[in-house]
Computed example of a mutant assay.
Amino acid sequence: MEKQTRKTKHEPSRGEIAREKLIIVALDLFGRYGFEGTSTRMLRDAAGVNLQAIPYYFGSKEGLYIATAEYLGGKINSHVSDLRTKVRGRIEEVAMAGQTLSHGEARGFLSEILKVMAALFISKESEPWARFLIREQMEPTEAFHVIYAAVMKPMFEVGSRLVGILLEEEATSEHVKLRIISLFGSLLIFRVAHAAAMRLLDWRAVGASEVKTIQDLVEELVAAIQPLKVQS
């Protein structure tokens, strides 16, 4: 009689649960009050753990702050890394054949990336992310470098390659970098200036219809990317 092997689902330990609770709470509190304004007691009380949990799992409050940045980078990447890898792979595949991605395919990939970002950054889930990220944009710490290396840099690189194809310019040019920054910024504004956007658009909430409207805007923004006309 053959033995049947059964895979058991990993059940998180008490330590893993406590560690994740602290990180989730830290993402919210650090975003609201900043590093200096968030005390270890606030973190402990919100997570429902004892005061020694922070030094035990993270070494210090500073260690928890960096772990929070790593967690945030991982959360964002869980939504975008597969698509980013697919696009990068296709660009390299075409390059290996001595060719360049067509404008149509580059436009399609860029639209797909921006639509995913639009849906992600106007979702309720991204509210605490935005608070944390905005603080790091204003006064960068080591946490900013963690998030930039994990998420922002690879996304900028892939986006710049696609925009470079559409503009028929080098992806590393300042002009291409400015265009990709403005593209991403035109979507992030719906999160970082959420109240103003909602007021101007007279939206009461962001649901499927509103997400679709913003994703339609993506198509317009990408369609507008054309090579600069050379003046004679």
Rank of each mutant, 00 (worst) to 15 (best):
T38S: 12
P154Q: 09
G164E: 03
V80A: 11
I122Y: 01
E142K: 05
E125P: 06
E169K: 02
L162M: 11
K86V: 05
W203L: 11
E16M: 05
D82S: 06
L200K: 14
G89T: 12
L64D: 05
A197K: 10
I165K: 14
A208M: 12
Y33L: 09
Q231L: 01
A208T: 12
A171Q: 06
K61W: 02
T85D: 13
F58L: 04
I134G: 00
T40S: 10
A223G: 03
E139R: 15
G98D: 08
S160T: 05
G98I: 08
V211M: 12
R14L: 13
Q4T: 11
G63E: 05
V151T: 06
L200W: 10
M42L: 14
L228G: 02
T141P: 10
R204K: 08
L133M: 15
G74M: 01
A208Q: 13
T38M: 02
K3P: 14
M138P: 04
Q137D: 11
K229M: 07
S173P: 02
R161Q: 15
A196S: 09
F30A: 11
E2S: 15
E157I: 13
F30W: 10
L43T: 08
R179N: 04
W203I: 14
A95Y: 07
M42A: 14
A143Q: 07
E170M: 07
R107K: 14
F58N: 01
H10N: 02
P128A: 04
I165V: 15
M152S: 03
S209A: 11
R135Q: 15
G74Q: 09
G159L: 00
R6A: 13
E70D: 14
G104F: 09
E139K: 11
L188V: 02
E62H: 04
V116K: 08
A53H: 02
L101C: 14
A119V: 07
L101T: 15
F156Q: 09
D216P: 00
A119M: 10
Q215A: 12
H194F: 06
G164M: 04
F144S: 14
S13G: 12
A205F: 06
I214Y: 03
R199T: 11
E169T: 05
H175C: 03
I54C: 03
T213D: 04
E169L: 11
N77A: 09
L188A: 00
L188K: 05
V25H: 02
E174H: 01
A197N: 07
T85W: 05
L72T: 04
S39K: 09
T141G: 13
R84K: 13
S209L: 08
E70G: 09
E127P: 02
A223W: 01
L22A: 09
A130S: 09
E174V: 00
A196P: 10
D202A: 15
Q4A: 08
K7H: 14
